[in-house]
Amino acid sequence: MSAYRGLDEDGSIAVEFAILVPAFVLLIAVAAVVGRQTVAQTAIEGAAHDAARAASISRTAATAQARGDEAARSVLEDHGLHCDPVTITVDTGQFARPVGQPAAVTATVSCSVAFSDIAVPGMPGNRTLSATFTSPLDVYRSRS
């Protein structure tokens, strides 16, 4: 005869449920934050790449600035990424180099991605992500 004969396990499932559900919800929230951050980083890298490429095929530094900014904003919009704030910097300083010398354009895109809609205690409300890409200028094409 067992010493535990009169004890039953009523309520044990409720205790397990109360312990495991919050942990599971936290795991899902953390996965959502990591997923959003990964998608945002990919979009920002694409924006920096397209900005540098659009700027590098321009003939003037002023046009390169405008086209780079436009290209980066377009990529971010296409990915549905709403940055607050977004900073796009297109370095066109090497446009002044004479034809025949190597030169490049560098684009940097920084974006503050919000996580406020995913309420996880201890997680930041937003995170600033950035990417930089450099694209060469054609060595033998005129530029100003």
Rank of each mutant, 00 (worst) to 15 (best):
Y4M: 13
D10N: 15
V15H: 09
A18W: 09
I19T: 04
F24P: 13
I28S: 14
A29Y: 07
T38S: 15
V39S: 06
T42L: 11
A47H: 04
H49I: 05
D50I: 00
A51P: 08
A51Q: 01
A54L: 02
A54N: 04
A54W: 01
S56Y: 03
T60F: 02
T63R: 11
A64R: 00
A64M: 01
Q65R: 11
A66G: 13
R67E: 07
A72R: 01
A72E: 00
R73K: 12
D78P: 08
G80S: 08
G80D: 07
D84C: 12
P85G: 09
T87Y: 12
Q94T: 00
F95D: 00
F95V: 01
A96D: 11
A96H: 05
P98I: 01
P98Y: 04
V99S: 06
P102M: 01
P102S: 07
V109N: 09
V109Q: 15
S112I: 02
A114F: 14
F115S: 07
A119E: 09
P121E: 04
G122M: 12
G122Q: 13
G122R: 13
M123P: 15
P124Q: 10
L129H: 09
F133Q: 00
T134N: 09
D138P: 03
D138K: 07
V139Y: 07
Y140L: 05
R141W: 00
R141P: 05
